[in-house]
């Protein structure tokens, strides 16, 4: 899922072009602001594409924030400064592994939101928490059930009872309950 240098710019350009195009169909007063913003947006996207094409690939460099901070510190105090580095546990070994994990995590997220739309928050929250904790965070079943269960109850108490928020029940929950009730 490594993005090419221009894909984001092209996406932005497409958004601006589309929105400016649609804005042309609005009355003068309504289209003024979208055009005021959209036309410079298109111009900047084209400029960015030009800059990206002009830049040599080897001239591009990812500056690590902490390395930059170490360099700044060295400049101020006049000698080398090295910060500690966080040890990352369970870090992906390569880009292929990163992509595999991205697909899995996105699948969890999409499944969770999809589940809310179908079954509502009350069903989806505990299922998502327990599944994610067990499968992704490698918690034991006991721990996943305990943490997921307690957190679900807390969310219910805080939002539904404490703040009086009515959470979405999903399109299928009501129908299912009606069917079960006969």
């Amino acid at each position: 899922m490594s993005l090419s240098r221009q894909s984001m710019t092209l996406f932005m350009l497409a958004v601006f072009v589309l929105m400016v195009g649609v804005a042309m169909t609005y009355p003068a007063g309504a289209r003024f602001m979208p055009l005021t913003v959209g036309i410079p947006g298109i111009g900047l996207c084209l400029l960015q594409i030009f800059l990206d094409l002009k830049r040599q690939p080897d001239g591009e460099r990812q500056i690590d924030e902490m390395r930059e901070a170490e360099a700044k510190a060295a400049q101020v105090v006049g000698h080398e400064v090295h910060f500690g580095h966080a040890e990352v546990i369970d870090a992906p070994a390569d880009e292929k592994e990163t992509i595999r994990r991205e697909v899995i995590v996105w699948a969890y997220f999409l499944a969770f939101i999809g589940s809310i739309l179908v079954f509502g928050f009350y069903v989806s929250i505990p299922v998502f928490l327990i599944t994610f904790l067990k499968e992704r965070a490698k918690a034991s079943w006991t721990r996943a059930f305990a943490m997921g269960g307690v957190a679900s109850i807390l969310y219910y108490l805080v939002f539904a009872k404490g703040l009086g928020v009515t959470l979405y029940n999903g399109v299928a929950t009501g129908w299912l309950l009606d069917r079960l009730a006969g």
């Binding site: 369970d90 997220f109 969770f112 939101i113 809310i116 739309l117 928050f121 929250i125 998502f128 928490l129 994610f132 904790l133 992704r136 965070a137 918690a139 997921g148 957190a151 969310y155 939002f159 928020v165 009515t166 959470l167 979405y168």
Partner: peptide, 25 residues
């Protein structure tokens, strides 16, 4: 990474309760 699912739940609730519209999800 243990915090991730709890925060994602908060995000979904936050997006919904703001206007009470499922479309925001």
């Amino acid at each position: 990474s243990m915090l991730v699912p709890f925060i994602i739940v908060m995000v979904a609730i936050g997006a919904y309760v703001n206007e009470g519209q499922w479309e925001n999800l």
